[in-house]
Amino acid sequence: MSTRDVTDATFEQEVLNSEKTIMVDFWAEWCGPCRAVSPILDAIASENADKIEIVKLNVDDNPATAMKYQITSIPAMKVFKGGEVVKTVIGAKPKPALEADLAEFLA
């Protein structure tokens, strides 16, 4: 299962109003580390589909959301629960390291 995209227009509905724990991957086409971490996020999403949803937001196409969350470095991965950011992970990391960062949401 590949992660789906959210946009400035859909962010409130799909992320902030989501009843699930949901992680947003802020990324861009030109960001090498974003491309590197993308398949790892796909794997984490499919292995933990019952616990966490992972979606992607392209920061070039959706500057308002990127600005609202003060993104200054990508990939930036923010976990939302009930419309609030409960965890931020910055930078591409190997799968075991990301799983460790997200342990509380994958348990």
């Binding site: 030109w30 920061v59 200054t72 470095s73 910055i90």
Partner: peptide, 17 residues
Amino acid sequence: LSGYGVSWCATCDGAFF
């Protein structure tokens, strides 16, 4: 502050400035 303004990669993060 790494990732919050401190960076080692201008090509990755420059566009946010």
